[in-house]
Amino acid sequence: MIGLNEYLILSGILFSIGLVGVLRRKNLLMLFFATEIMLNSANIAFAAISGHYGDLSGQMFAFFIIAVAASEVAVGLGLLIVLYKKQGTLDLDNLAVMKG
């Protein structure tokens, strides 16, 4: 029998994978991929809990997270385009304008 804990462990693993990706990636586009992974892991957790208790709030929240992720991708890609036109590369280390 699959209990809730397994789903939560899966969600945790996926989240950490996403986090590792975010921390390691130097190409901005690949960074966004890793962010998507993190969002999805949260969705899995929500859906699992919601299904386990029969409460629909979790699925609603997952629904909204998907909506937010979509708009985030739109705006983010737009910004990336502008950045690429300006810099010619998508390297993260070139972006250190705010160096203190």
Partner: peptide
């Protein structure tokens, strides 16, 4: 360091989220 961080976060999450369960 990065992998260690990631691992720790995973553990944290699981602990925090399964505690109420």
């Amino acid at each position: 360091l990065v992998f260690a961080l990631g691992g720790m976060i995973a553990v944290m999450f699981v602990v925090i989220f399964s505690a109420p369960v």
